[in-house]
């Protein structure tokens, strides 16, 4: 196994994912296999190769910093689990 349980626990926390106890063994096993598999990239001859930034060598287009969309808050918030007065509600953060 290239990854152990502690490493996987750390990665899960970085990714904000709660894994159920019965998911753990399988996740450690399959993630290790994936990491072993992609490890073969280290053998590729990349000494003088530049990392690819865009498949067509384009640069990211920027738009003027101007408001272009109308207010659609109420419609958009219909998908929110919990809102009040146009705000998204989460568990208390500051005591």
């Amino acid at each position: 196994m290239s990854l152990d349980k502690e490493q996987v626990q750390h990665i899960a926390m970085l990714a904000r994912l709660r894994l159920a106890d019965d998911e753990f063994a399988e996740t450690v096993d399959k993630l290790s296999r994936i990491v072993d598999f992609v490890d073969q990239l280290s053998a590729a001859p990349t000494a003088d190769v530049v990392p690819m930034a865009h498949p067509l060598n384009q640069t990211q287009r920027l738009r003027p910093d101007a408001v272009t969309e109308a207010d659609d808050r109420d419609h958009i918030q219909e998908n929110a689990p919990e809102t009040a007065d146009g705000l998204y509600l989460v568990p208390r953060v500051i005591e």
């Binding site: 990854l3 994912l17 159920a20 993630l31 990491v35």
Partner: peptide
């Protein structure tokens, strides 16, 4: 965050998110 994502995503999606995070 952790519970909503843990419950909402299936096993393969979680594996890929974790591979990417790693």
């Amino acid at each position: 965050y952790c519970s909503s994502r843990g419950e909402g995503f299936g096993a393969e999606v979680k594996r890929r998110i974790m591979t990417g995070t790693y």
